[in-house]
Amino acid sequence: MRLLMLSTLLLATTACTWVPIEPAGKTVRVLAAGAVPAGCQSKGEIVVTVKNKVGFYNRNPLRVQEELETLARNEAPSASANAVQASAPPADGSQRFAAFQCPPR
Rank of each mutant, 00 (worst) to 15 (best):
G39E: 03
P61C: 11
E67R: 08
K51A: 15
V30R: 10
K26Q: 07
E67D: 08
K53H: 15
Q41C: 02
A33W: 02
G44H: 06
S42M: 01
V30T: 15
V28M: 01
G55F: 14
Q41E: 06
R59C: 09
N52H: 15
V64D: 03
G39F: 04
F56R: 12
K51H: 14
E69K: 10
G39N: 04
E66T: 11
V47R: 15
A38S: 09
G44T: 05
E45L: 10
T49W: 10
C40P: 04
E69R: 13
E66S: 10
S42L: 00
V47A: 14
F56Q: 11
C40L: 02
G34V: 00
A32L: 01
E45S: 10
Y57V: 11
V54T: 15
V54H: 12
A32S: 06
L62F: 06
L68V: 09
L31T: 07
L62I: 06
L62S: 07
R29M: 13
K53F: 06
L31K: 05
K43F: 02
G44N: 04
P61H: 09
K51C: 09
R63T: 12
K53D: 06
V28P: 03
V54G: 12
V48S: 03
L62M: 05
L31Q: 05
Q65N: 11
G55A: 14
K26W: 01
N52W: 09
K51N: 15
V64Q: 03
C40Y: 02
C40E: 03
G55M: 13
A33P: 03
R29P: 09
E69G: 05
Q41D: 04
P61Y: 09
P61Q: 11
T70R: 03
